[in-house]
Simulated assay, not measured.
Amino acid sequence: MAFPILVTGPSRSGKSEWAEHLAAQNHPSVIYIATGKENAADVDWQNRIQQHRDRRPSHWQTLCVDQNLTDTLETLPAGSCALVDSLGGWVANTLELSPEQWQTKQRELITFATQGQNTPITIIFVAEETGWGVIPVYALGRIFRDRLGALTRQLGGLCGQVYLVTGGYAVDLRRWGEPLPPPRD
């Protein structure tokens, strides 16, 4: 169908809203893939989840996914649009994986998502820009930030459309940006 779309930006920038706008524009069948785990003990978190639910059209299907993002994407009907919100939630769900297990999960997702015209669905990824702040002082925070940053960079280089949402604006990075050379090993 189409190459995937990446929408990235800092917290509270409107990236989910922009991704929802893109999905609603041309896709009658949208499947919202939520990666954030519900936590009844955290009232603020539950309120944030509810705000996202309230904003979405009621006819959109919602799937909650933890580690099995690629498996879920592979089962979606042809012609549908998958809005993955967000890659940060998915990375957080996979933090206990070893580096080798993480590389396998990441490679599976990138391979599936970047098959271009052979992928029977449109995928819109939402990703947080966690590297714009300080380097976390604890190891798990650094692993999260590094994994998400590397995944976002890889997808950004392969997606057909890449948007940075900040300050209330969505900037088309493919149009206005220059791609980086591939990272050296």
Rank of each mutant, 00 (worst) to 15 (best):
L97D: 11
V162L: 12
R107K: 15
P28R: 11
I121Q: 07
R56S: 01
L76E: 01
N93G: 03
S58G: 00
T122C: 07
L22T: 02
K105S: 13
G79E: 04
A92I: 00
L109T: 05
N47H: 13
S11E: 15
D146F: 06
N93I: 10
G160R: 10
E108C: 05
W132A: 05
D44S: 14
V7W: 09
R142I: 03
G79A: 04
L73S: 07
L109I: 05
L6W: 08
I49M: 13
S13A: 14
V7R: 06
G141R: 10
I124G: 07
F144K: 03
E38L: 11
I124W: 10
P183D: 02
I33W: 01
Q115P: 02
P179R: 12
P182K: 12
M1L: 09
P181I: 01
A92F: 09
P179V: 11
R142W: 04
S11D: 09
T8N: 01
W102K: 00
V165S: 01
Q117N: 11
Q50A: 14
G156W: 08
A34Q: 09
H52I: 11
L69H: 06
D54G: 00
M1D: 03
N26D: 15
A82D: 04
D42W: 10
Q103F: 06
T152I: 06
P182G: 01
D172Q: 03
E74Q: 12
Q106W: 05
F3T: 06
V134F: 13
N26F: 14
S11R: 12
L63S: 00
V43P: 00
E96D: 15
D54L: 14
P136M: 02
V30A: 04
I49Y: 08
Q25Y: 03
I110V: 15
G131F: 10
H52W: 10
A139F: 07
T122A: 08
E178V: 15
H59G: 00
R53K: 15
F3R: 14
G131V: 07
H52R: 15
T111G: 11
A19V: 08
T111S: 13
H59Q: 14
A82P: 05
W102N: 01
R175A: 14
A170D: 04
W176F: 15
E38S: 15
L69S: 06
D185G: 02
R145P: 02
A19H: 08
T130C: 09
T111Y: 09
V171C: 11
T75N: 07
G14H: 10
R55M: 01
E17N: 11
G116F: 06
I123H: 03
D44K: 14
G177M: 06
C64T: 12
V165F: 03
P120Y: 06
A2D: 10
V84G: 05
L148Q: 11
W90T: 05
V43E: 15
L97Y: 11
E129Y: 03
L76Y: 05
Q106L: 10
A150G: 04
